[in-house]
Design a binder for these strands. Structure first.
Length: 539
RNA sequence: GUCCUUGUAGCUCAGUUGGAUAGAGCAACAGCCUUCUAAGCUGUGGGUCAGGCGUUCGAAUCGCCUCAAGGACACCA
C-alpha cells in the first residue's frame, strides 16, 4: 500500500465514524508542494462542508479527532480547511522494502479483466517508415506497455492495407524496375514509387525468378505485388523491431475481404445502407456522424471505410473489450464515422477510442522541411535512429502529449548535446548503478538513519509511481511517465550531490542509503522500459 | 462556414482532474570537483496563465464570448 492509499483508507474510516458516506474517488490526497504543509494534504473537509452544513475547519477538526493516527507524525488544519498530514519517517521508508521485495513488478496493478486491442503504425508496406510513423509507433508502443503494467490484457496490432491502389502501384513500380534490369521498358505509373529500395527488391526478384516474368501483360502483376509487399513488410518489421516496437497480430485487408465477407456485412447492415447517384452510402449520420458516408463508389470500388468497418468488427469479435486506434491527426473525421458504424452493429460508442497523433514538423535552419514518401527523399526513421540513437528518438517522441504539435529540430536531434532529457535520466541510473557496483558494504534496512530532505523526496517519489502508471494508463498518456522520470532523476541527482553514499566509517548509514538507491534504480529502469528507453549500467 | 487540437517565463513544456506563494529544462548571470561519474548540483533574474465576462469559499484548470496558430471537413488513403 502506498502513502496515498494509506491516508485514503484512514480518511474513509474516519468519515464512516462520523456517519458520512462518500465514494472512494471523492477523496483526494495530494502530495504537498511545500514542506510547511506536511507530506500530503486533503481538501476533503472543504468539499464536504457545504453538504454537511458546517464550516470546513470545523469539519476538518472532527475528521482529525476521529482519524487513526498510527504511522502519522502529526495532522494539522491549515488555511481554509486543508488537512495536512505529516508522515512518520518509518511510514515514509516502508516504500523502500516494498520496491526491493517486489522488484520489477513494483507499480504493477492488479490484473484487470479487460482486453484492449491497440492498433498503431499500420503504415502501408510501400516504403520506409518516416518520422510521422515513428511518433505513432513510439506512442502506440508505449501505451501498450503502460496498459499492460496497469493490469490490462493487451493485443498489439498492425493493419496492412494490401488491397488498394497503393499496393498496385508498388507492384507496377517493382515490375518497371525489374524490366529495367533486362534493359526493357515498362512504363512506371504516374503515382509509382521511385525509391531506391524498389531497385533493390527488383534485384531480389530477378535472382529468385530470373527472366520468367518479362511479359508486358498485366496478368502477372499479382506476383509483383505479393513479392514487393512481402519484402517491404519484412523491412518495416525489421525497422520496428530495432525501434523496440513489436506486434502480436498483423491483419491484412485482403483477409478481411476474403470471399463474400463484405457482402455478408452489407446484408447485416442493410437497414443503414442506401444508394444515391450510383454510389452506396452508409447512414452514419443517424448516429454520431455529421453526414452519411460513401462505402461503395459509383465505379463499383469500395472506399477504405467499408472494409475498415469489417476490420474493426473483426477486432471486436476477437475478444477485445476496447479498441484503441493510434492515428495521424488527419484522421479526425474518421472517428465518428467509425463509431457510428460500430454502433450500427450493437457496440457502444465507447468501444472505440482514437488517439490522434499531431503532426511532426521537421525544422532545419529555422525552416520547415517538407517530405514526400514517393519521391524517396523523406527523412527515414532508420536514418534518424542511426544519427541520434533509439533512446533519444523514442524519448523525444513520447515526451509530449500526442495531441500537441511537435517541432522536431533536426539540428537539436542530430547534435548529441546535453539538452536531450533522456541523458539526464540515464545518467542518474548509471550513477546509482556505479555506486552499487563499487560498494562492498551490505544493504540494510536501518531506514531511521535516512533523515535528509533529499532522501524523503526520493521515498515519496517512489511511493507515487503506482499512481503515475494508473494516470498514464487511464489517459493513454506516455508523456506522464516522462515527466515522472525527470522528477525522480532530479531527486536522485540532488541526493547524490548532497549526500555522500559510501562511507566505510558509517556502515549502517551506507547500507540504508544503498537500499534507497537500489530501490530508485529499480523504479527508474522500470519507468524507462515503459517508454522503450534503455537504462545503461555505465555511461 | 462547421468541427477538432493548441495558446502558461526569451525558447521547449509541466501543472497531480477546482486548492495554499503558478513550476521544471534550455538560454543568461554567479558559485561548487585532492572523496562514490561535473552528462551533475546550488543560487539569481525572468509571468496580464492570449483577452473578457461568468460559476464559488477558491479558477491556469469548469461555462460562454472574442482573438491567434495548426489541422480536419472527398465517390483520397
Amino acid at each position: 500500500m502506498n502513502n496515498e492509499e494509506l491516508l485514503l483508507n484512514k480518511i474513509k474510516a474516519a468519515l464512516i465514524k462520523l456517519n458520512i458516506e462518500v465514494e472512494d474517488n471523492f477523496i483526494i490526497i495530494e502530495a504537498a508542494k511545500d514542506k510547511i504543509h506536511g507530506d500530503y494534504a486533503s481538501n476533503i473537509a472543504m468539499k464536504l462542508a457545504s453538504k454537511q452544513k458546517t464550516n470546513p475547519r470545523a469539519l476538518a477538526q472532527q475528521i482529525i479527532d476521529s482519524i487513526d493516527k498510527e504511522g502519522l507524525e502529526k495532522i494539522e488544519i491549515a488555511g481554509p480547511g486543508f488537512i495536512n498530514f505529516f508522515m512518520s519517517n518509518e511510514t515514509l521508508s516502508n516504500v523502500i522494502d516494498l520496491v526491493l521485495n517486489t522488484k520489477d513488478s513494483f507499480g504493477t496493478n492488479e490484473k484487470i479483466n479487460k482486453t484492449v486491442n491497440v492498433e498503431y503504425v499500420s503504415a502501408n508496406p510501400t516504403g520506409d517508415l518516416h518520422l510521422g510513423h515513428a511518433r505513432g509507433a513510439a506512442i502506440g508502443d508505449s501505451i501498450t506497455r503502460i496498459l499492460k503494467k496497469a493490469g490490462y490484457n493487451v493485443i498489439r496490432e498492425y493493419y496492412v492495407n494490401d488491397a488498394g491502389a497503393q499496393i498496385l502501384h508498388l507492384g507496377e513500380s517493382l515490375k518497371a524496375r525489374y524490366f529495367e534490369l533486362y534493359k526493357k521498358k515498362y512504363d512506371l505509373p504516374e503515382d509509382g514509387y521511385q525509391g531506391e529500395d524498389i531497385i533493390e527488391i527488383a534485384k531480389q526478384f530477378k535472382s529468385k525468378y530470373g527472366d520468367k516474368y518479362l511479359e508486358e501483360s498485366d496478368e502477372n502483376i499479382e506476383i509483383f505485388k505479393d513479392f514487393g509487399m512481402e519484402k517491404e513488410l519484412d523491412k518495416l518489421k525489421n525497422d520496428l523491431d530495432e525501434f523496440r516496437v513489436h506486434f502480436d497480430v498483423f491483419s491484412f485487408e485482403t483477409t478481411i475481404r476474403k470471399g463474400s465477407a463484405l457482402d455478408d456485412l452489407a446484408l447485416k447492415m442493410k437497414d443503414y445502407i442506401y444508394e444515391e447517384g450510383g454510389a452506396t452510402y452508409l447512414a452514419t449520420s443517424k448516429f454520431v456522424d455529421d453526414k452519411d458516408r460513401v462505402i461503395i463508389k459509383s465505379n463499383g470500388e469500395a472506399t477504405y471505410f467499408w472494409p475498415d468497418i469489417a476490420y474493426h468488427l473483426n477486432k471486436l469479435s476477437r475478444n477485445a473489450d476496447l479498441l484503441i486506434d493510434v492515428l495521424g491527426a488527419d484522421h479526425h473525421g474518421y472517428i465518428n464515422r467509425m463509431k457510428s458504424a460500430l454502433m450500427m452493429n450493437g457496440y457502444s460508442k465507447d468501444s472505440l477510442e482514437v488517439e490522434l497523433i499531431q503532426m511532426v514538423r521537421i525544422v532545419k535552419d529555422g525552416e520547415e522541411v517538407k517530405m514526400s514518401k514517393r519521391l524517396g527523399n523523406a527523412i527515414k526513421l532508420r536514418d534518424l535512429v542511426q544519427e541520434v540513437g533509439i533512446d533519444a528518438v523514442r524519448y523525444f517522441f513520447v515526451s509530449r502529449d500526442a495531441a500537441t504539435h511537435l517541432d522536431f529540430d533536426l539540428e537539436l536531434a542530430l547534435s548529441q548535446s546535453s539538452s536531450n532529457p533522456v541523458f539526464y535520466a540515464q545518467y542518474a541510473y548509471a550513477r546509482m548503478n556505479n555506486v552499487l557496483s563499487l560498494s562492498t558494504i551490505p544493504l540494510n534496512n536501518k531506514y531511521n538513519l535516512l533523515i535528509d530532505e533529499t532522501e524523503f523526496s526520493l521515498m515519496k517519489s517512489l511511493s507515487e509511481y503506482g499512481k503515475i502508471i494508473q494516470d498514464a494508463a487511464n489517459e493513454r498518456a506516455p508523456y506522464k511517465i516522462c515527466n515522472y522520470i525527470q522528477k525522480l532523476s532530479g531527486y536522485v541527482h540532488e541526493f547524490y550531490a548532497k549526500c555522500r553514499i559510501l562511507d566505510v566509517n558509517n556502515v549502517d548509514l551506507t547500507g540504508a542509503r544503498l537500499s534507497l538507491i537500489k530501490a530508485c534504480s529499480i523504479v527508474i529502469k522500470n519507468a524507462l522500459e515503459l517508454i522503450g528507453v534503455s537504462a545503461p549500467e555505465k555511461m
